[in-house]
């Protein structure tokens, strides 16, 4: 028995291994990368282009001009959309891993379960950030540019946003018993979260048409994920969005760790 590896260096090796596997799996799934990139580009090239001809969007901070082209407005929301899909896809792969038995390999590692789950979460976040930067590169050639500061400042915002959406997915994966149930969750989670947010339209515009919908959008954590990214792309911090994203991340990460705890969680109560 070798206990020498269960130290801080071993933790680093373990973290690196989990990220390496996630990245390796991602690079081997070209269609996953393509669909992750094509999805927001379809919105950008077709949906936004159509709306641009109809109207620009009148918004306030962080934009300096009052009338912003629509595709410029929705670009941060599309970045968040990539992370939303990636977070849910990661949790889908967790459910798949649990069904195939690969999850057991992870959970019988001698490292603490919270560390393993957080590493798994971070691995997904790193993959999602690579996808977002690939999207921003294509958007740059489409004329949607941020400053160098914006491209750098968006990195920590993407880390936080990715962690929040990944933690939500992780928690969902602990509660979902079978892959078949996942499709329903996607419909009930991804689409409502995306559409009832500030990703596609400013909240004041939503308030004009429906106060109830406006309140739903304000309650939706994804709105704050979008705003955190939007402000960061302009080198600014949206304090409210930051606080909400950090709090929601902490809540769902703790909930997921408890759910995967063998003595307390949902997994313990299920016969697999």
């Amino acid at each position: 028995m070798n206990l020498g590896h269960v130290n801080w260096h071993g933790h680093l090796v373990c973290f690196h291994g989990i990220v390496w596997r996630e990245a390796l799996r991602f690079t081997k799934q070209r269609e996953r990368f393509l669909s992750a990139l094509v999805r927001p580009l379809v919105w950008l090239f077709i949906f936004a282009a159509g709306f641009r001809s109809a109207y620009g969007v009148v918004v306030g901070a962080p934009y300096e001009m009052s009338n912003v082209p629509y595709e410029v407005y929705i670009a941060p929301g599309l970045c968040a959309m990539i992370q939303l899909f990636n977070g849910m896809q990661s949790s889908l792969s967790m459910v798949y891993d649990r069904e195939t038995g690969a999850m057991r390999t992870l959970l019988v590692s001698p490292y603490p379960r919270w560390f393993l789950l957080t590493s798994k979460l971070m691995a997904g976040v790193i993959v999602s950030i690579a996808q977002v930067y690939a999207f921003l590169l294509v958007a740059y050639f489409w004329g949607i540019e941020a400053s160098i500061t914006g491209y750098l400042a968006v990195l920590p915002a993407l880390m936080l946003s990715g962690m929040m959406l990944g933690a939500m997915g992780l928690f969902l994966s602990s509660a979902i018993r079978q892959l078949e149930n996942f499709a329903g969750v996607m419909n009930f989670v991804i689409f409502p979260m995306f559409f009832a947010s500030s990703a596609l339209y400013p909240l004041w515009k939503m308030e004009e048409s429906s106060v109830v919908l406006f309140e739903i959008c304000r309650f939706n954590p994804f709105t704050y994920s979008v705003e955190l990214i939007r402000f960061a792309l302009y080198g600014q911090i949206n304090a409210t969005a930051f606080a909400v994203v950090v709090s929601v991340t902490a809540f769902f990460l703790c909930a997921a760790i408890v759910a995967y705890d063998p003595s307390k969680g949902l997994i313990a109560r299920k016969r697999s």
Partner: peptide, 19 residues
Amino acid sequence: DVGLTVRQNMRYHAALHGI
């Protein structure tokens, strides 16, 4: 992991044990 090689699976498992 059926999508990875045997050696890649070994490396992943080793990392889970800090190797």
